[in-house]
Design a protein around this nucleic acid. Structure first.
Lengths: 246, 246
DNA sequence: CGACCTATTGATACGTATCAACCCGAGTGG
DNA sequence: CCACTCGGGTTGATACGTATCAATAGGTCG
């Protein structure tokens, strides 16, 4: 299971201080959170919690990547969320978990017991405001994903996923047009397939298709080279105007 | 465009008083909301707002049905939300709309100008709490829909949609097992197709398939008879345990 | 009555799933 | 050091499900 970190970093130099749940909190409020927080770490591939489990802690992702998944009996599963640093796990007012949560890389969580957390939520409006904002952002992302799942072709799905990761990974204006971007994939082909509502084989075929057409280059299994982001954007089926896929 | 109601009903006998945004508000808080609210009505088929429009009002659905849709240039569209009475339109802190909103039946909205609404949101914690709860519920619904779009067959999709509507429409324990349930569809085949990520033809074929197999009966285009809800549940691919699709 | 809209049904095409073989790099143990 | 295995990935042949194109039916409205 999870083991605690040797030393608990302080909130003030926390890497997700300004993007996570606590983004709007002032120093006093941060101190309230600090008193009840504790860390947990997980290894890649480890199950964090399963659907139906009692939900007695909520947490923020500090570092690493986790997935939210939903499945049916016969084995089919669909990923419904990708949790990156600063994302939040759990929901106040609900006592059981709705999804399977899995670490896909080494993962560190900043945890709070649910009861005291809910108390703080009432006490600190900044917390509630930020949580609302984050929930609405996730809702937008989920809805964009619905368009992808319902209406896009396999090739468009892959291109969309690559665009999504590229936008999140790369420095905002780092790679200008003309420059080849280098994208390190944080997830396996199987995870991508679950994310996109495809099979592993189809994912693999689309990768080779995009490579043969010169849209991307491959350097091993986990590195994608993107000569021209605009080309990839066209393949994704999205229009440029701050379209879907935040 | 929209025309105002002749008389503005009072909040206290509002049909969505206890399920909408204002569910947790006490009488004083309700009065604050009441002062800034106004009604708008739309006809079936009418466009309420389009993606990119300035979002200067937010609203609750009082009666009728509306849809939230997202599209790509080439004409493909995917419905990302079905708005029923008590559901909320718009989000605080954002000034432009992300989706196309359309009335699919005669529709009445209880509207608030965004600015004064955001002020009330800070002033009335009950409002913020409820909005958070509703956003998280919608997020769960969106994620369940992702499983449907990504992994279910056409037949399962139709069965799931019918189960969803049946659960929302029928009185909780009204139709017990053994009784044939009667379900009036609020949406056309085309709307269903957009919702499920299918074409009209496929929707139609699945309806006749389910009918030939005795899972449902059809009485005209808009009425479905369900001899045994359990049979339909099996077809939907969901397990019984308070599964997906609220 | 004809025009029109929604829904149904049929024939066929196409995209992705499925089943199966193979490749490759990393461990592992003889 | 090499043979072995194992997991992840790629590639191929084929099946199946849904989209597409096209024609028809039924209802409503002018």
């Amino acid at each position: 299971m999870a083991h605690s970190l040797a030393t608990a970093p302080t909130c003030s130099n926390c890497p997700i201080r300004h993007r996570a749940l606590c983004a709007r909190c002032d120093d006093d409020e941060l101190e309230d959170l600090n008193r009840i927080k504790f860390y947990r770490t997980y290894k890649a591939g480890q199950t964090i919690a399963m659907r139906g489990d009692a939900l007695d802690v909520v947490a923020s992702v500090v570092s690493g990547t986790a997935t939210l998944e939903r499945g049916i009996e016969d084995g089919r599963t669909q990923m419904v969320g990708l949790l990156l640093p600063s994302d939040f796990i759990g929901r106040p007012g609900r006592t059981t978990l709705q999804y399977d949560v899995t670490a896909v890389s080494e993962l560190t969580l900043c945890c709070f017991a649910r009861k005291p957390f809910e108390a703080l939520l009432i006490q600190i409006p900044h917390l509630q405001e930020r949580l609302l904002e984050m929930a609405l952002d996730e809702l937008d992302a989920a809805r964009d994903w619905m368009l992808l799942l319902g209406r896009k072709t396999a090739r468009e799905k892959i291109a969309s996923l690559l665009m999504l990761m590229a936008k999140r990974t790369m420095n905002p204006d780092g790679e200008a047009m003309g420059t080849t971007s280098r994208l390190e994939l944080p997830i396996s082909r199987e995870t991508m397939a679950n994310f996109l509502g495809l099979t592993i084989e189809t994912v693999s075929r689309q990768f080779t298709g995009l490579r043969k057409d010169g849209v991307i280059g491959l350097d091993g299994n986990r590195v994608v080279l993107i000569p021209d982001l605009q080309d990839l954007l066209v393949e994704s089926g999205d229009d440029g105007d701050g379209g879907p896929l935040i």
